[in-house]
Amino acid sequence: MNMTKTFKTLEDFLGTHFIYTYDNGWEYEWYAKNDHTVDYRIHGGMVAGRWVTDQEADIVMLTEGIYKISWTEPTGTDVALDFLPNEGKLHGTIFFPKWVEEHPEITVTYQNEHIDLMESSREKYDTYPKLVVPEFAKIAYMGDAGQNNNDVISEAPYDGIVNDIREGRYFDAQYHRVNK
């Protein structure tokens, strides 16, 4: 199910599901849900186990086949991703508030059900200095999920989920979850 198409337009990018690993070893799963929202699951790194759906984001094409996505989470974490899918890589910079660096476990949940906790933690704990994590990543998987597919990121991460996805056990031919 790993795609081999060439990315040229913004439409080519929207609806794509990615799995990638940063050079520091952190593994992420990320979905360009539509032209203004993203979903993601985090499988490695200091906030492994965190997952988010319908995160509002700015999604643009910088030039043919190169995309920039940026957003601010309710935690106060800022994210900027530059995708070069034709080259199988991206560059991401994550700006973690001090409180997330000191209390990452608070964020390791399905954020959408705990927005109040994220916002109150942001007010309760220090936000500065930020922990800035700029890293290159290699894209290990690209799937054509189509836009607004709520099956792509629809459950908490579990051990082996990225292998299930990469090896074709997680989605059917229509990119819907096999085991709901």
Rank of each mutant, 00 (worst) to 15 (best):
G65I: 10
S70I: 00
D78W: 14
Y67A: 05
G76M: 11
T72C: 05
G146Q: 04
G143V: 01
E102W: 07
M142G: 06
L117V: 15
L131S: 10
H114K: 11
L117I: 14
G76K: 02
K130G: 02
L90A: 02
D82S: 10
A137I: 06
A145D: 03
Y125D: 06
H103K: 15
E135R: 13
E113N: 13
V133L: 14
M142P: 03
Y110F: 10
T109N: 15
I94M: 09
Q147K: 05
E135W: 11
H91Q: 03
D144G: 12
I115N: 00
F136Q: 03
T127R: 08
I115Y: 10
H103C: 01
W99M: 13
G76I: 04
E105Y: 13
N112I: 12
K68V: 07
W71R: 06
L131N: 04
H114Y: 12
V133A: 05
N112T: 10
I106C: 04
G76N: 08
M118I: 13
P134D: 08
L117F: 13
G65E: 05
P85V: 03
G146K: 09
K138R: 09
N86H: 06
P85N: 03
K68D: 07
E87H: 08
M142N: 00
I94R: 01
T127G: 13
D82K: 07
S70Y: 15
T127W: 14
I139C: 15
T72W: 09
W71S: 04
Q111V: 07
K89Y: 02
T75K: 07
K124I: 01
E101Q: 11
T127K: 12
K138C: 08
L131A: 06
V100I: 00
D126I: 03
K89A: 08
G146V: 11
Y141I: 05
D116H: 13
D82L: 07
P85F: 08
G65D: 04
N86P: 07
M118L: 05
V133Y: 09
D82A: 11
K138Y: 07
Y110M: 15
R122N: 00
K130F: 11
A80P: 04
D82Q: 12
K130V: 12
K89H: 08
Y125V: 00
G143W: 07
Y128L: 15
P134A: 04
P97H: 09
N148V: 01
L90V: 12
W99Q: 01
T107Y: 15
E101A: 12
G88T: 01
L117T: 07
A137K: 06
P97T: 14
T75Y: 02
P97D: 06
N150G: 05
